[in-house]
Nucleic acid binder design. Structure first.
Length: 477
RNA sequence: GGCGGCGUACCCAAGUGGCAAGGGGGAGGUCUGCAAAACCUUUAUUCAGCGGUUCGAAUCCGCUCGCCGCCUCCA
């Protein structure tokens, strides 16, 4: 609310109540929706890792103008649209590997609570009914604009809103809308109608969390008017502060412009996952700070893929080492590795404690990766060296668990890349080729061996000759 | 017009008062039959520009330029 970073201390010690605006179920989700979901998934995971007991609520708006419009266009009932796109949303989230929230309420299941809140606002003089609609009277709420840092005069003068004569001020917003012919409706004290957009978050957050809760999240485009209006309604109704910390994620851009439905420059989650592994998408989104805009492009996704590949290549090396390392104690560059290892957790925590700076955290991960590679290059052996490497592996895996990346085996990663890159070689055919090439290599028929390698490379497979044999992997990037 | 944000190497990006993380790319090297992977060296005396504060600024302040967002539904 201050517009700055603040020290985090939840209302009740050890417990975090977090509400994140989900989607309006009127169309398929694009990458922008994915960013919000992924960002707050990481927030939740990290807070839990730090020992907080987190209650995460993520709502679904399943009644709204756009849903109705879509339903009319498709000539079906509004709930068919809402159901369809809610299902799509859940499917997208599952494919992306985003964990579900603890509570995922739908607006239409909370009409009663919303009516109660609206009635309360009328009783307290903050809202007024007109012809079956109910409006919130912005002028009655002195602090209006405190989140978006707008003052009401500026808003008035810049008002591009259609002036509705029945409203006392153009800034007043609907809590309840009377239903027109053919629109869905619920019975209310003001006649048949449906809730306005903002009221659901007030009603549901107080129901599932409390009147004041710790973190409220969503995309930066929700700051105004959505979150501003939520504050007004909620604080007017309860007389208590609504939210302690606001977190808004930045936009995904395409050619520097916000990815959005209206500009038509969006990529759906499904489209992207046809070309990239979900882990690549998640990693990509973590490479920039959550508040910054992030430019979507194939180059960026490709770089993310290369970075992940670097991690899995290192994991493979680690595995090879642990299987092959001799018993003789040889320390290698263990002193350097130990140093990096010792400092790593603090660095990681500092980065994440500083407003979830995942980009910085990833930097430290790659420092550790370089160091362990350096250590392995120094050809260490013995029990102590093994222990050090195992420690590194566990540390990396643990961190990966928090960021929800690096949580597969290299084999799984490469199999997934094969699929995503539509590589036209089966694993059997591949092993066959490798065997063929081994034969040629044994006979020092380098030309034939190189031919096989070239042939596979053209199909996107890279071969690596090691002491113990030849390994394959999918060419990243 | 009002409000807010951003501008760091060839590209992406962290750093917000004390000698400029990390990834990708380029160049050279080590290793290898040759590769790949990995590692090493190198690639910003400089952080859009100009002033100011300070012992010291990419980091704070002011101005200028450029880009973007919100002010209407929007993650």
């Amino acid at each position: 609310m201050s517009g700055r970073k603040e020290d985090f201390s939840p209302q009740s010690q050890g417990q975090v109540k977090m509400y994140v605006c989900g989607i309006t179920a009127y169309d398929v989700c694009h990458l922008g929706h994915a960013r919000s979901a992924i960002v707050f998934d990481i927030v939740k995971r990290y807070l839990r890792y730090k020992g907080f007991q987190v209650t995460h609520v993520r709502n679904i708006t399943d009644i709204d103008d756009k849903i109705i419009a879509r339903a009319q266009k498709d000539n079906v009932s509004y709930d068919v649209i809402a159901k369809k796109y809610t299902d799509e949303y859940y499917r997208d989230m599952e494919m992306l590997g985003v964990s579900s929230a603890d509570i995922e309420p739908n607006a239409t299941d909370h009409i009663r609570e919303m009516i109660q809140t609206i009635q309360g606002l009328i009783d307290k003089g903050f809202a007024y009914p007109v012809d079956g609609d109910v409006y919130f009277e912005v002028g009655k709420f002195a602090a209006y604009g405190k989140l978006s840092k707008k003052n009401t005069e500026d808003l008035m003068s810049g008002a591009r809103v259609d002036v509705d004569e029945r409203k006392r001020s153009p800034l007043d917003f609907a809590l309840w809308k009377s239903s027109k012919e053919g629109e869905p409706w619920w019975e209310s004290p003001w006649g048949k109608g449906r809730p306005g957009w903002h009221i659901e978050c007030t009603a549901m957050s107080s129901k599932y969390l409390s009147e004041t809760f710790d973190i409220h999240g969503g995309g930066a485009d929700l700051i105004f008017p959505h979150h501003e209006n939520e504050i007004a309604q909620s604080e007017a109704y309860t007389g208590k502060p609504f939210v302690k910390y606001w977190m808004h994620n930045g936009f995904i851009t395409v050619d520097k412009e916000k990815m959005s439905k209206s500009l038509g420059n969006f990529f759906t989650i499904k489209e992207i996952l046809e070309k990239y592994d979900p882990e690549t998408v998640r990693y990509f989104l973590l490479t920039a700070h959550y508040r910054s805009p992030i430019e979507f492009s194939d180059v960026q996704l490709t770089e993310a893929e290369l970075s992940i590949d670097r991690y899995y290549s290192t994991v493979t090396r680690i595995k090879d080492f642990l299987e092959a390392a001799g018993a003789a104690e040889k320390p290698g560059t263990s002193a350097d590795l130990e140093k990096v290892l010792a400092a790593f957790k603090d660095k990681f925590h500092n980065a994440m404690n500083d407003d979830f700076n995942t980009a910085s955290a990833l930097g430290f991960i790659f420092e550790l990766i370089r160091e362990v590679n350096r250590f392995l290059d120094s050809k260490p052996s013995g029990q102590k060296a093994k222990e050090l490497v195992v420690r590194t592996r566990e540390l990396l895996a643990g961190i990966g668990g928090i960021l929800n990346i690096f949580n597969r085996t290299p084999e799984e990663w490469y199999r997934s890349l094969m699929k995503v890159k539509k590589i036209a070689v089966s694993e059997e055919a591949l092993l066959q080729k490798i065997a063929e090439r081994q034969e040629a290599r044994k006979q020092k028929d380098w030309a034939r061996a190189d031919n096989v390698r070239k042939e596979l490379e053209d199909k996107g497979i890279i071969l690596e000759d090691k002491k113990e044999g030849t390994a394959w992997k999918v060419k990243a990037g």
